[in-house]
């Protein structure tokens, strides 16, 4: 085996299976990532609010949840949801895609909640005091003063989380969901070539996350411009 044959094989595989990589695989990967990011952010924000709530049971539930999710391997969580959810909720029987998506959302929500919570708490307490002293309520202070400043702390970290999520969707291939990594496994099985499909997938993943990180950086700079120095 040498590099020129690998190169030739990659070109051959791309010609023969381009639709498996770029249509089937990529669409599964992107849809899983989009679902995870979208619902992960919504649930993550809710968990963060619970975590900072004045009602103790809400705080306990949310902190136990984040600790458990962050303290167990993601692959284990995927297995647990994959086998456990259909038993708990019968309508999810044979709905592998849904089970994996739910597992990814639950995992991401825990991390996002920590990002949002720390971003909010990083805003100087003096900002809250100044707003409250002017007569703003707690909710108004959050909305007009704290959150606009917290967004600048949250966004870069959230962008990194999105990139992580995009890569984490590859774990879905454990259950042959159909994502990019699943296509790698299928093509490897059909052609007995392991390196070439892996290389192709690596390039696709890299391009995907590279574009994402550039977009996040752009957004970050746009936000910075808001408060000219």
């Amino acid at each position: 085996m040498n590099f020129s044959t690998i190169g030739q094989n990659i070109v051959r595989l791309l010609i023969k299976y381009w639709d498996k990589f770029l249509i089937t695989g990529l669409s599964y990967t992107l849809s899983l990532a989009a679902i995870t990011v979208f619902f992960g952010t919504i649930f993550g924000a809710l968990i963060a609010l619970m975590r900072m709530s004045r009602i103790p049971p809400l705080r306990w539930v949310s902190s136990v949840y984040t600790e458990i999710i962050r303290g167990t391997p993601m692959l284990l969580q995927l297995y647990l949801f994959y086998f456990g959810l259909p038993q708990l909720l019968p309508f999810l029987n044979r709905q592998q895609y849904a089970c994996v998506a739910i597992a990814l959302v639950c995992n991401s929500a825990a991390y996002v909640s920590e990002i949002i919570r720390s971003g909010i708490q990083a805003v100087d307490i003096g900002q809250t005091e100044a707003a409250r002293s002017l007569g703003f309520s707690q909710a108004q202070t959050m909305r007009y003063i704290v959150l606009p400043q917290a967004v600048k702390n949250i966004l870069p970290a959230l962008g990194n989380e999105f990139i992580m999520v995009t890569k984490d969707t590859s774990l879905a291939s454990t259950f042959f969901i159909g994502d990019l990594m699943t296509q790698v496994l299928l093509i490897k099985g059909a052609t007995y070539l392991p390196i070439e499909p892996l290389t192709i997938a690596a390039i696709i993943y890299f391009l995907l996350t590279f574009v994402l990180s550039k977009l996040v950086g752009l957004l970050e700079r746009r936000l910075r411009r808001g408060d000219i120095r």
């Binding site: 100087d124 003096g126 900002q127 005091e129 100044a130 707003a131 002293s133 002017l134 003063i145 606009p148 400043q149 808001g226 408060d227």
Partner: peptide, 12 residues
């Protein structure tokens, strides 16, 4: 009205 040691103007 309250005025603080560290001003606490809203930077945004």
């Amino acid at each position: 009205g309250m005025v603080f040691q560290h001003f606490n103007l809203f930077p945004h």
